[in-house]
Design a protein around this nucleic acid. Sequence first.
DNA 1: TTAAAATAATAGACAGTGTTCAATTTTATG
DNA 2: CATAAAATTGAACACTGTCTATTATTTTAA
Lengths: 197, 197
Amino acid sequence: MGRRSDHSRAELERMIVLEGHRQLAEAGFSRFSAREVAKRIGYSIGTIYNVFGSHDRLILAINTRTFRLWADHLRARLGSADGDRIRTLVEGYFSFARENPNLWMAIYDHRLPPDVAMPPEYQAERGELTEIVTSEVAKVLPEPARAGAPRLARSLIATVHGHCTLALNGTFALMGESNPLELALARVRESLAAAKA
Amino acid sequence: MGRRSDHSRAELERMIVLEGHRQLAEAGFSRFSAREVAKRIGYSIGTIYNVFGSHDRLILAINTRTFRLWADHLRARLGSADGDRIRTLVEGYFSFARENPNLWMAIYDHRLPPDVAMPPEYQAERGELTEIVTSEVAKVLPEPARAGAPRLARSLIATVHGHCTLALNGTFALMGESNPLELALARVRESLAAAKA
DNA sequence: TTAAAATAATAGACAGTGTTCAATTTTATG
DNA sequence: CATAAAATTGAACACTGTCTATTATTTTAA
């Protein structure tokens, strides 16, 4: 059959990503099924492969969307932030991950094979996220230290990421730690204080 | 058939874990196959399930072994360390992950379902690893701050873990960062310095 | 020594998965 | 309307983890 409804190709693509997003959020990375996505939007598995080409590229498209939602989440929080924007940033990192654990973890669960290229949109959304952090870090640093903001921002992202990962996968609970967020924030503050001096 | 060779049950268990370890190191978590493990040691898939009961418990057994090797790796490095034991620790964390990327990542790739319990040996090996770090952190802290060593150690593990994760999955390379290890070490030093003051 | 019980191992069946692709149906165009 | 183009299908393939009835061996008991 050919085009069977009023959906353009772009709209079909959106439908698949949207339903895929829903599925990934519900089932998690390991139980995600492209067949199930197709079934739920009333298409067959072949259509998914015509549009996305592979499982990897479908996941990539879904993760790109997650990145965008995550960046939106941070921007919204920063928009209505009181003075402590660094805390807002760390809390925003954690809260998105906690509110969307399967989606957030899927970003890091998915390791793309060497033969499949990273889509430009994916890299763009990812870049925006780091840009948000970098600009906030720069704001907090005194003029002479500001040149080091990008590098410090990457490092602070890694620091918060590590705390968030171990929080979500239960490692901190196993270690008897009940407040990973405050732990992460303390580390970030120390590093910023050191950069100021 | 019954026992067909001179392998005791415990020896068979070891054989499976050993070959599984090899497979996991080669293929990585997503391409790991219990069937392939069985085939390579000359047994059938059923035997794996008689011994381990499920895919999850096999992975758990393999990851337990990885934890032990990792702890050994750190102990060996600390044993022949010069004065800078903190650097040795961070470097040991990174070097094990870099030398065994698939095994190291598999530890965090594997999310065990809520219905399968964590084996005591798993938790024990994991505990030893954090103990190594905690004791080194305690050594570096002045007497009055030493009570906070366990909590700080957890946090520093998370910090280094985050840097190591983003290093191995290519995020740092994408961000243009070429030396994640030194970044991690700098953050750790800052936090230790802050704890001393 | 032989019979019974316990153990070990197998291989096939089942329901899934990602992937491919020839066949088919729908739409658009001349 | 006829034809070309595009979109969609679903069966087939080679896998996967999991379960189970069957068979073979070893151990134990009589």
